[in-house]
Design a protein around this nucleic acid. Sequence first.
RNA 1: AGGGCAGUAGCUCAAUUGGCAGAGCAGCUGAUUCCAAAUCAGCAGGUUGAGGGUUCAAGUCCUUCCUGCCCUGCCA
Length: 328
Amino acid sequence: MAVHLSGIQPSGLLHLGNYFGAIRQHVALSEQKGEHFYFIADYHALTSSRDPEALRSYIRETAITYLALGLDGDSACLFRQSDVPEVTEIAWLLGTVAGMGLLERATSYKDKIAKGLKPSVGLFTYPVLMASDILAYGSDIVPVGKDQAQHVEMAQDMAASFNAAFDAEVFRRPEMLLSEEKSSRKVPGLDGQKMSKSYDNTIWLFETGKPLRKALNRIVTDSRPPTEPKNPDELLLFDLLHLFLDDGELQQLKTSVREGGEGAPGYGDLKNRLAEGIEDWFAPAREKRELLLADTGEVDRILARGGEVARERAASVRDRALEASGLR
RNA sequence: AGGGCAGUAGCUCAAUUGGCAGAGCAGCUGAUUCCAAAUCAGCAGGUUGAGGGUUCAAGUCCUUCCUGCCCUGCCA
C-alpha cells in the first residue's frame, strides 16, 4: 500500500495560498487508497519562531484547519513532528552522509541568506531534517509545490547515499508528486506577488466580515473608473475571483468589465463579491472549526493517536538504520 | 582562544564637552477614492543587547557577560 506524506509548517495562520497551493490537494489525496501521514512541522518552525505562546497556538490552529477542511483524523495519520523524536535521530544519521556541497546548493537556504537573514545551524541543516521526515515513514509519494521539489530530491540523494554507504536497503526512495498548476493559476497575494507569509500579502482562510473586507481593500487596483472598459484578464482581482466564482458568473462579470459603461462593476463591487465568495466557500469549514475549537479533547485525541502510529513506524525505520550502520 | 569593530522603534539610522531618546520608511486610525494607490490630518511604536559600577545626571564613561562581523591562532 502506497504511503503518502505531507507536512506543513505551523508558522502562522493558514491563508488562501496555503489552501489552493497545498492543503486542498492534501485533503483530496487523503481520500485515495493508501496510508496517509500528515505532520505539523513544529521542529522546522522553530528555525524562525521565538514565541512559545504563538507557536503553541499555531500548531493547534494548523491541526484544526486541516480537520476543518475535511481531513479525516481517524483514517489519516495527523501528528506533530516533535511527537516523533525518532526523526531527529534519523536526521543525525542522514547528516553523516550528506555532503556540505549538497546543503550549500539548497536554493531556499541561499535565498534566505541573500535576503540578509542570519542563518542558524538548524536552518542550514533543514533539508536533512526534512529528508528524515520523508524517509522515517517509508514514504512513496510526497506531494509538494515547486519550491519544495529540491528538498525531495535531496531526500532521495541522502537515502541513496546512506543505503550505498552501508550497502543496505534501509531507506525507500520517495517520489515527488508535483502539484499540477494547469487547472488553477497560482494564487496571487494582495500585492500581486505570490501569496506568502514572508511578503505579508496573505488572506486568512477563515477571515470574515469587516476584517476580511479590510484585508481585501489592500488588493492592488488602478485609478480607472468603473465605466471604463478594461481587460479583466489583466486585473489581479480576477485571479482571485476565479477561485471562488462559478464559470457562468465569472464570464458575466468579465464581459461586463470588458464592455464598461454604466452598469459595469467597479473595483469596490468586485472586492465585495470576492469577500462573499470567500465567506461562502469556507462556510462549512468555519462551522467545523468552531466545533473543534469548542471540543479541544477531540483534537488532542487525534494528534495523540497520530503521533503513536507515526512513532511506531519511525522507530522501526530508525532501528534498521542503526543496525545497518553498526550502532547496534 | 587572542585582537579589532559593532549592537538605539518592525527596518535604515541620528542624538554636541555626559544634560528631556529622535527622524525617515513601514504600521494603525480618519479624510479623500467605486475599492485601492497617491496626498492630507492624526496615533502608536523603546528595559538604548543584558547585568553591575562612577555621577546630581549615562545611549554616551568604567566593568563583566551575550550576540554578530573581520583578522590571527588552536584542535579531537
